[in-house]
Amino acid sequence: MFRCRDVGQLLYEYVEERLEPPVSQQLEQHLADCPGCLAFINTYKQTMRLSHELRCDDIPQELQQKLRSFIKTKLSSARPSFWDRLRSRLTGT
């Protein structure tokens, strides 16, 4: 007989579909008779869905431009300028 506590302990594996089929079936039998556990599992899964909805797929245009000008500045300051090259040639360094 499954108790609510067992459901709590197996919840993660159940949601991740890691339980052996017979264990999973036993757990589901408990859920059929236990509104509290069913509500808990439903809201646990709903939390995961809501988390996934936080995934952000857009990057504002102005930020894309800012990124490119940042990179451009950094790369050009890292590259030796004409004067740097001339100086090193003259001083032999």
Binding site: P35, G36, C37, A39, N42, T43
Partner: peptide, 11 residues
């Protein structure tokens, strides 16, 4: 080991 309080299914 049984649930001792109401659980709301807000999902």
């Amino acid at each position: 080991g049984m649930i001792a309080e109401p659980v709301v299914d807000w999902s």
